[in-house]
């Protein structure tokens, strides 16, 4: 099963994301009526790594996110989330053959996300997400936004509301702890000064960071970010890089992100998966993906055959890519281009 993913074609060595995947997506297919948004997609997200999902507009990236976070039920495929080290192949196969949604394993636990409703994925499987068009609770304060994210632990602490109404001390303590955690994250995203302002009042960049902080308040094992750098200026986008590095470093949270900003992607990702028309066209570390001809073709909107057969197409690609990278990618540089270059 998923042999292609477990032994990458491009390298002999086994990649870290195949040895210790936090999330494996296997043969994922999503159809909307007649439209196939994702077709037989398989990839892994390594534990403690930053994985980027890239591809042209309409490639199906957000659909993958919606399948992983339970907002869509995939037509086919398995999405396994693991708590604890290793592939846990034994437990994965046990859960798959049972009717369970998840099962504890010696290493941690295995969750089959395609069987779980969205809120359970966040609550139990510990997958948090942000949205392409920011979804904050605009009429609530920044602090309240972060408290809502800690709903489940607080509900337990409030004795499912009854203890809270009676004002039991246990709840008071838990509430203070939740405020402390919110303050911690507000400091990390540098929004502590705005804690009592309504979220809708924040400027765009701050809203993006607040959404990440809110997702982190659910203490996720996997953080899914849908275009976190969209609409950010270069300075903000640099800060975002640092924030993501920090999250990965200090909290060990694995990150899966969709991004168009190649600067961000190449700088921070450990692993890149490229989608086009719902199909995976490349998978590997940034250096490998950067030079993959099919990726270049997909981004520039040309077919592979064109690249091989039509010199004018190839020359455009080479121009876009730079000759060195093109040669590395195995694109034959047309002679006309060579001459032009000499001039």
């Amino acid at each position: 099963m998923a042999a292609a993913v477990q032994t990458p074609a491009d390298a002999g060595e086994t990649k870290s994301w195949d040895l210790d995947p936090v999330l494996t997506v296997e043969h994922l297919t999503m159809r909307f009526g007649g439209l196939v948004a994702i077709n037989d997609l398989s990839f892994n997200v390594g534990r403690g790594e930053i994985t980027a999902l890239i591809g042209p507009n309409g490639a199906g990236k957000t659909t993958v996110f919606n399948c992983v976070t339970g907002f869509y039920k995939p037509t086919e495929g398995r999405i396994a989330m693991r708590h604890g080290l290793g592939q846990q192949a034994q437990t994965v196969s046990e859960v798959t053959h049972s009717s369970l949604k998840w099962k504890p394993s010696p290493e941690g636990a295995v969750f089959l996300l395609e069987r779980m409703p969205d809120f359970e994925i966040s609550h139990h499987a510990k997958v948090a997400r942000t949205f392409q068009n920011i979804r904050l609770f605009g009429g609530m304060t920044v602090l309240e936004n972060l408290l809502v994210a800690q709903h489940n632990p607080l509900m337990r602490a409030s004795g499912f509301t009854l203890g809270g109404i009676l004002g039991l001390p246990g709840f008071r303590k838990a509430e203070q702890a939740s405020i402390d955690k919110a303050v911690y994250w507000l400091e990390q995203v540098r929004l502590i000064e705005r804690a009592d302002d309504p979220a809708a009042d924040l400027p765009y960049g701050d809203q993006r960071r607040l959404e990440i902080a809110r997702a982190m308040c659910t203490e996720p094992h996997l953080l899914c970010l849908d275009e976190p750098a969209a609409g950010l200026n270069p300075r903000e986008s640099h800060e975002l890089n640092e924030l993501l590095q920090f999250i990965r470093r200090e909290h060990g949270t694995s990150v899966l992100l969709i991004e168009h900003d190649m600067g961000v992607v190449m700088e921070i990702s450990d692993h890149i998966v490229v989608l086009d028309y719902g199909v995976k066209i490349s998978d590997g570390d940034p250096a490998a993906v950067k030079t993959d001809p099919s990726v270049i073709a997909a981004y520039l909107g040309v077919e592979d055959e064109d690249l091989a057969e039509k010199p004018e197409v190839a020359s455009i690609v080479v121009e876009a890519l730079g000759e060195e990278a093109a040669e590395e990618a195995g694109i034959e540089i047309p002679p006309a281009r060579k001459n032009g270059g000499d001039k």
Binding site: T69, S122, R135, L136, F137, G139, E144, A149, N152, A215
Partner: peptide, 16 residues
């Protein structure tokens, strides 16, 4: 109140 503001965001935060 969060539900009133944005139900989808609520679900993404683990609220039933």
């Amino acid at each position: 109140e969060a539900l009133r503001e944005d139900e989808i965001a609520c679900r993404s935060l683990g609220i039933n």
